[in-house]
């Protein structure tokens, strides 16, 4: 393998993924995302820097961490246990070393492309027997374009199928670096309305829709839509997204009803729990989508629920 010392920040390598592209895949999660979707189930993916996480089951209420923190990001709550406010935290990580009970850990690590690729290649026999491969997800892979491109290029040299799961929010130059090494793009479309998109997700969608065309010109792609009650779960909008998929040449369109499994992560990260304000996706509604798109079941997929 050609050595590549391009450095990236990742937070998880998830083997045995079957929802992030065809076959059995390993998903590499990169850290850092320019969007701020309130329903995010991986809130640890948003901040680009390595950050701290509290797990308080073992906390001895010694208060050392609070004394260590110069930024007042850690304060004591009514139970004499630390409370984290990420908005004050400068990620100095001094609290991690200070805790005698091992309650404070870090999320994310820096790694080089060749280190991570040798890890990803370990499951190569599983990829080839299942038509699977590797998916880069996040966070936003386009936010670390050099690292992403390097990892993908090395995987391609080893004959591995590559996929990139993206919000579509990135510079054209970054797409140009990444797409030549990508077999499949999992392209998220959250809303087609410029203003609604900007209000809820934090960025407008014009660049995303532009990038969709660039992707469509260069590689195979799926459109994926997280279904959020009250935001984008109306059938008329879904129809328009499916029509967009058809017109741009998407291989399939997947609607993914929101789940709340990530909710417990927010307080551990010192982040406001935005997911708390998102209602669960009713099974009935999910069924309505199933029924509506039944005639296109080889093109429109509704997962989970």
């Amino acid at each position: 393998m050609v050595e590549n010392n391009s450095v990236g920040t990742i937070f998880n390598i998830q083997p045995f993924s079957i929802h992030d592209g065809p076959g059995l895949r390993t998903t590499l999660f990169l850290k850092g995302c320019p969007l701020h979707c309130p329903w995010c189930s991986n809130p640890e993916s948003i901040l680009a820097a390595i950050q701290v996480k509290l797990s308080l089951e073992k906390c001895q209420q010694c208060g050392i961490c609070v004394e260590t923190c110069a930024e007042n990001a850690l304060t004591l709550d009514e139970n004499q246990k630390p409370r984290l406010d990420i908005s004050c935290c400068n990620q100095c990580l001094k609290c991690v070393e200070s805790c005698p009970s091992g309650c404070i850990s870090t999320i994310g690590r820096k790694t080089t492309a060749d280190t991570v690729v040798s890890e990803l290649l370990k499951d190569a026999p599983f990829y080839s027997n299942t038509g699977g491969g590797v998916t880069l997800s996040g966070g936003e892979p386009l936010a670390q374009p050099d690292f992403t491109a390097a990892v993908l290029a090395m995987l391609k040299r080893e004959g591995i199928h590559t996929a990139v799961d993206t919000t579509g929010f990135g510079l054209q130059g970054h797409l140009d670096a990444v797409l030549p090494h990508t077999d499949l793009v999992l392209f998220d479309i959250k809303h087609l309305d410029y203003e609604r998109h900007r209000q809820v997700v934090g960025v407008p969608n014009d660049r995303i829709l532009e990038n969709l065309k660039i992707v469509a010109d260069q590689t195979g792609f799926w459109i994926r839509v997280p279904l959020i009650p009250g935001f984008n779960d109306d059938i008329e909008l879904a129809d328009r997204i499916v029509a967009l998929g058809k017109s741009t040449g998407a291989e399939r369109v997947c609607f993914m009803p929101v789940h709340r499994w990530g909710e417990h992560k927010y307080p551990c990260l010192g982040m406001p729990n935005t997911l708390a304000g998102i209602p669960g996706f009713p099974a009935k509604r999910s069924q309505a989508f199933q029924d509506h798109f039944r005639h296109m079941s080889d093109y429109v997929f509704i997962t989970g629920g």
């Binding site: 079957i18 076959g23 059995l24 026999p125 599983f126 027997n129 299942t130 038509g131 699977g132």
Partner: peptide
Amino acid sequence: KHYPVMAGYLKTIMDL
């Protein structure tokens, strides 16, 4: 819907 993937998984276990 996952049978093909599972069959591949099982085949790989056997290959190994």
